[in-house]
Simulated scan of single mutants.
Amino acid sequence: MHRFLIKTITFALVGCLLILAIALIPGFMVNKFSKFGIKNNSTIALFGHSHSECAYNDTLIPKLTNLSHSAESYFYTFQKVKKYLSQNPQITTVLIEFSNNQIDTKMDDWTWGYTYMSNMFPQYASFMGVSDFELLAKHNSKYFMNCIGLAARTNLIKALSFNYDYTGKTGGYFKIEGSKPLPSSNPANGNIKTSSNKNTISTTNLQYLRKIIDYCTNMHKTVFLIRSPQHPLYEYRHNEAEFSLIRERYFGEIKFLDFNNYPLKNDDFADFGHLNFKGALKFSAYINQRIINGMLNTSSPPHGRSIENRQLATINN
């Protein structure tokens, strides 16, 4: 009986170690051998969500690579930024899309909501730190382990197929052909509401924006925040007062390139928040000319300030 118990325990331990190895070793290999390549002549990297994904046709902006991805919170952008900057020393300038909806608690769902986490976590889990795992586990423990399993399977497939190349798989310009019928672009006709509700701020998303900025400056990159054009009737423009307050208070040392009101017609928009290919064509040509004219020139890169010990919650007071 004693011998049988020892064998059972030994078998269980070996099984646990085998499962642990299957889960961890592929993740280690993905982290070590992953490739995040961009064009050699591309010195400007743009990160963001669907607004910038649809606005910047980087075939029209030779020095820029659009690495934006739809429904991507700064939590996942941070993982991506670390890999692209460490593997592409030709990048000298980083543009980070910063628009009105990125301060909203909607971004929390984009970070740990199961639909988004199950999609993004397997892609970037290998590049996360312990604090990143703790954050997801804290806010969605119910589905976090499920996502761990998805990531383990994804990494195992990558390792077995020796497919570590992320190039072209983490975002890029997205062309939208059509346009929904939109009302007048005159704000007076839309009665855009202002809001004094300050209980809808995603402190997590803002903290990860600071992590991105600090990482970029530590890598000696010049960082800009940039806002793509939004239709005057876009619903999230109601939080402009809060948006401006947050930007000035917590990211005021970072130059803000604001094209929120860049003049476009209704048929240049796919919807209130996104440009279609016609709008992107006009806007991208304009941005390229601005870059040629020195829009991104600066004597030295700005130095980021840590947000970790600062109370974003004071915005709610």
Rank of each mutant, 00 (worst) to 15 (best):
S300A: 14
K142P: 06
D214G: 10
N205G: 01
F256I: 07
L275E: 07
S70E: 13
S306M: 02
L206N: 00
A280R: 07
N40Q: 10
W112S: 10
T77D: 09
K32G: 08
L13W: 02
Y114R: 07
R210T: 14
R247M: 11
L85P: 00
L245N: 09
Q79C: 03
N66D: 10
K106H: 14
N41D: 15
K7Y: 07
N146R: 13
D165M: 04
T314G: 07
V14C: 10
F75W: 08
I22R: 11
F162L: 14
L275Y: 05
K198G: 12
L18E: 04
F11L: 12
K169W: 11
N186T: 04
I213H: 06
T111L: 12
K32C: 08
L160G: 04
C216Y: 04
S300I: 12
S86I: 15
L5D: 00
I246C: 03
I315L: 15
N66W: 02
F174H: 15
F78N: 12
P229F: 08
A55D: 13
W110I: 05
A313C: 08
N266H: 09
S70H: 01
I307E: 15
Y173K: 03
R290P: 03
E242G: 04
N260Q: 14
S179Q: 11
Q102K: 15
H49D: 13
R249Y: 12
N197F: 05
H2G: 00
G149S: 11
Y166G: 11
N260E: 15
T203I: 13
L206M: 07
T105G: 06
Y143I: 06
T93A: 08
Y116M: 11
F269S: 03
P122L: 12
V30D: 09
D132N: 06
R210M: 10
T167N: 11
N191K: 00
P122T: 10
E253M: 15
N40H: 14
Y166Q: 07
N260P: 08
R310Q: 15
S126C: 06
K211W: 05
Q207R: 13
G304T: 03
K7H: 08
P302K: 12
H139S: 07
E72Y: 04
S179F: 05
Y236V: 01
P187Y: 05
E253L: 05
E253V: 00
M295E: 13
F224Y: 15
L264K: 05
N239R: 08
I192H: 06
E97N: 13
L46W: 03
D109V: 10
H303C: 05
N266W: 01
Y215M: 04
F4C: 03
L5C: 01
S196G: 11
S299K: 12
M117R: 03
P181R: 14
K211S: 10
K32N: 09
F144L: 07
N119P: 02
R247L: 03
A55F: 02
S300F: 09
H220A: 08
N218K: 13
D58C: 13
A151E: 06
A285Y: 09
N317W: 11
N186P: 02
L225M: 05
S42L: 01
H139E: 09
I226C: 01
H274R: 14
P26F: 04
P62V: 05
K221A: 10
N276F: 06
H274Q: 15
F33L: 15
V223K: 13
K211I: 03
S70I: 02
E242F: 08
